[in-house]
Amino acid sequence: MKAAPFEYARAADVDEACAWLAADDGARLIAGGQTLVPMMAMRLARPTRLIDINRIAALSYIRQETHQDQDGIAIGATTRQCAVERDALAAAKVPLLARAIPNIGHAATRARGTIGGSLANADPAAEISLIAVTLDATLSYRAGGKTTDIPARGFHVGAMVTSLPEGACLTAVRFPVWQGRIGTGFHEVNARSSDFAFVSAAAQIELGADNKCKRIVIGVGAATDHPIRLESAERQLAGGALDPKAVRAAVEAALTDIEALDDLHATAAYRRRVAAVLAARAVADAFADAQGKKVQGNANAH
């Protein structure tokens, strides 16, 4: 299981990486390589040239940024998943991300795997993609000497398919920071605790002083070929008391028409049904969390 031959080059900066990408149709960027390298080993991916962006210092950071009056946490594309996992600022400002990250692979893959690499790879079960979609994160990429923003929801379009233009390099993702009484919930189910999820669900809410839901987002991953938002449920539940039965009914209704994936690990029926279960649990956790109650968390808690 050895990769097909390729050329290797380390890019000094993003524009150099982009220029090299543009010069060679077969070139690919490598960040953490935790998905790309196995694909290459099995010769399912055969880049002619591998452009290594790991050493571009400007792509590795976690910082607070205000963008069009919206507070956000910006994370550079090659920031390691383990760096975000350990980062107090990210945990405080984007708690949903902090809840999800320990569920990605293993410590040894999070030590190399990057935030941008996971987003660009766009596995339907990727936790970071789910959180980006759920929170309406903004992705930035560089191409032709120009930086462009794209919403996470427009970025993820299919299984391992994104709207990132040819020759572009993803540079950052910016998660909006919510203010107020915030609560988050994240659940996923898989065979073994560290496997790709069959289904995952994330929710974030803001509660008013009356314990009514002021704002709610709910995302579901792995059930379909890319992460989705349960918008109809969000609309229905916003402003309400998040009664468990109402939540369940709303998420079930939002999931009735999805085209669920069907594969070796889980049937479409399983994914559709359990997506509703996990989405409801994520909302329940978020509700409890916002009220300062302890949340048990993921069903597959380690």
Binding site: V189, N190, A191, F198, H265, A266, T267, A269, Y270, R273, V274
Partner: peptide, 11 residues
């Protein structure tokens, strides 16, 4: 006894 199979059976 895989998760999905058992889950579907129970459902």
């Amino acid at each position: 006894i895989k998760v999905s199979k058992l889950g579907d059976l129970i459902a």
